[in-house]
Structures are given as C-alpha cells and as structure tokens.
Design a protein around this nucleic acid. Structure first.
Lengths: 231, 231
DNA sequence: ACAAATATATAACATTTGTTATATATTTAA
DNA sequence: TTAAATATATAACAAATGTTATATATTTGT
C-alpha cells in the first residue's frame, strides 16, 4: 500500500528526517514561522525564488498554466511537505505556482540560509538530490495515468491518493476537501464531467459526499477500477 | 519559436556546452564510444545505474510502465542529448527505461568518472542541477497537455515538437520517423485512434505520409489546432 | 441575518475516443 | 526471393467525454 501510493507522492515530508540532533537544531534555527491566508500565493511562475517552505498546517496546490492559460494542478501539498527548492537550487525562476487552499502555517527558510544548510549538512544535500530524482519519477507516473486511464479510473486513483495523503498524519478521517474545480483540474476534466463521475461513484456506493467533502466508503471497488491490488 | 518548443525540450544537449577547452578535454577523455543495436535497452526501470550516455547518432525512447504495465513514452532523445544522470545523482535505481529506436552510437561515461567530473567542474554540476529543474518543468508541461488537450491537439503539438527536435541539427528534413505504436504511446491514445487523426490531418493537407514517415506540410494549421502562435 | 456571489448538481445533446474487425502494406528471417 | 510475421489503414459501432443550459445549495461580505 505504502509502496503503491509512494509512486505518486513526492515524499518531501521526509527531507528533514534522519538528521542528528544538532543538525536538526541548525535547521530549526533558520526557520521563520509565517501565516498565509487562503487564496494567496506562496510563489508564482516566473517569480524569483527567495527561499523554501515547509507546510505545518493546511493544504496548498502547485499548478502550472498550459500555453493556453488553463490551470493544471499537478500536486497538492499537505503538512510536513517541503517545497520551493527546485528553482532555488537551479538559480532560476519558479517554473510553477503555489497557492494556499486554506489558511496556512508554514516555516520559511531564506535562500541563503538553506544553501548554507546544504553545504554544512551533506546528508541533507544528498537527500534533496535523491528526492528530486524521486519527484521526477512521480511526474512520469502521473503522465502515464493521465495518458492511459479514463476519467473514472483517474478519479478513483486520485481519490485514493488524496484520502491517504490528507489523512496520513491525522487520527480522524476528514474525507477529501477540495473544490470541484480543483479536483477537476487535478484529474484533467471539466467540472460537469467530474460531477457525472462522482454521481456514478455515489450510486455504486464507493463514496459519499457532504457539502464538498468526499468520503471513501468502498476503497476496494475503487481499486478494482484501477485494475490493481493495493496491499 | 525556440522559446515555445523549449517548454517541452529537456535541453540536455546543452550540458557540455560552455566548458573551457581543458574542461572539455577532461570530459572527452572519460567518454567511451559504444554502438547499441536497435531495440536494445540502454537501461531499464529498477536497474542499477552504471553511468551516463550522450547520444551521438540515432534516437532513443524513454518510457515507464504504468502500474497496469502499459508503456508510456515520455521523451524521445536525439543526437547530443545526455541521459541517465537522475538515478546516478540520487544514488538510486533507474526510475524509467530507455530503448534504442534505431542503431545508436553513444558516448558512455562511467559513474565514478562522471561524479568526479562533477566535483572537479563546478560549472558542470551547476548546469546539471539547473537542467534537472528545467526537466521538471517540462514534465509538468506535458502533464498539462495530456490533461487538457484533445487528441488532435496533442498530436499536432507532438508533430511540431518532434519535427523540430529530429531535424534541428540536420540540414535535410527527414520527417518524423516513429512507429505508429510509439507515436500513440507518446500522445496517449490507441494506434487505431491515432490513425484516424492522421487521416484527418492528411485530408486537411496538414501532413503527408510515406511509409511510416510523417511530413509536415502546413504547420500553421497545426498551430491553430493548439490555439497558440509559435514565433 | 440577509442578499449577492460563488459553488455544486444534473440533464440533454454533440463530439470525441475506444474497440473490434478486416484488409492491405511493409519488414524480417529463412 | 518468398513466406511469415509485423505494421499500418480503415470502417462501423459502442462508450466516454465535452458542452450548454438551468436549477439548487453553499459561502461570503455587509
């Protein structure tokens, strides 16, 4: 199970794991806690990187506008995830945008501090590079899904992924709380067409909804749609 | 134009550009020339990296198998492109597979030699990291296209991209020479459905075919399908 | 608490894409 | 060179998805 989901998870929440006590202290010392309002941008495409973020509370979407301007979400970040390091490492501008889906609490590390940490903690640099390689594989997997799976299968997959990601570190299942618009932009369809698939899933008893929240009721049925056994 | 295409090009052919004479010599000295037969693998998913490759002649496809085993091509490499460094940098196994589409001539740099070059030539390391960031953006752009564009638009885009990439460094236009199967696995459709789109394009005068080769006859019409002006 | 704005649900119809089947062309190996 | 294997082309029908329209629910700002 963990293994199946990890094909689609950036796992950037593990970046600061496995540090020694003193290394960890050095990292903590550079962090500045920020509150970010729902709907505002952590960074955007074309902007100049100023540092990296670790989400401590809330969710954020990473997206890119295709050449015709349509928003394509390719990742939803949740607490503990670290983001914003690609552009910073490459000394270039952001390739994508990141927006708070709810009020966030984040820890910010300024560019120079983070680069210094990387120099001083070789294990961190190694882990970061490893992680970037992993993320590359995740995007390739997402490409395979979008290119090969039909809408119901894509929806089933993302519901399973998001449920797992959203409720990983929380004792109570809160369901999947995204706007229909965001969910549609994640699985690559229109809002209306997404609604049709959700209705089918409800009729089959796979899911239930309350307001915009989606609760998975029969994950086995969803997995069967993917023709894969998650264990 | 260059700018539009570069959104979808890895640009790994530029990796060894801008080196000093002596740096360049150091790189050349570590390279070993290899001949690889059509259909054989440069590396495959799960394998342990042994080094990196620069293609000197021929084309290769990079692909991944989705969890149901279907092949999804996400890049076609052409001469001068460098590949295979992700897994090597991250000290992990290959995340994807690479197969020769025709008989290849490649230059191989063994893992330890390449890692040494990176240590000794900071500009190379910097460029590599920058390039990995760029590739991340390319995959995100491909995700947007696959998720948002219909089949004809996807086909039009990839025909323009491939024509540009295949004939970039060659004086004579040779058209696009890929099996229907590979082209279908690149744009995310079935071979039969791809055939239908190709037929439409032929009827509209956008393209002509000879054997499996595809020649672009009216790129303006293809660009209009994308609702974008390439200039 | 209320009105306005925004988000969601649903249906009907059009269009696109998938699938199955069959025929023809091209390449490969003996 | 020829037979077998593989690749390509095409059509007909089924299924999935896009689009437009309208109604209802929920959220936001005052």
């Amino acid at each position: 199970m963990r293994d199946f989901f990890s094909q689609f998870d950036f796992q950037s929440d593990l970046l600061f794991e496995d540090l020694t006590e003193s290394e960890n202290q050095a990292v903590e010392n550079t962090m500045e806690s920020l509150a970010i309002k729902k709907g505002s941008m952590l960074f955007y495409e074309g902007g100049i990187p100023t540092g990296i973020y670790q989400i401590k509370q809330g969710k954020a979407k990473k997206f890119k506008r295709g050449f015709t301007g349509d928003e394509q979400i390719f990742y939803i970040y949740t607490p503990q995830d670290v983001l914003g390091y690609h552009a910073l490492l490459g000394q270039e501008r952001y390739q994508d945008s990141c927006e708070a889906l709810e009020d966030l609490k984040v820890n910010f590390i300024a560019k120079e501090d983070f680069l210094r940490l990387l120099r001083e903690i070789p294990a961190l640099q190694q882990k970061l590079i490893k992680n970037i390689g992993h993320e590359f594989g995740v995007l390739a997997n997402i490409i395979a899904v979008l290119a090969q799976k039909n809408q119901n299968a894509r929806l089933a997959l993302f519901l399973l992924l998001l449920e797992n990601r959203f409720n990983r570190n929380s004792p109570t299942v809160k369901g999947i709380d995204l706007t229909r618009d965001d969910l549609a932009n994640l699985i690559g369809t229109s809002q209306e067409s997404l609604g049709r698939s959700l209705k089918q899933f409800k009729e089959q008893g796979c899911i239930e909804t309350d307001k915009r929240n989606i609760y998975i009721k029969d994950s086995l049925q969803l997995e069967q749609l993917l023709q894969v056994k998650i264990d």
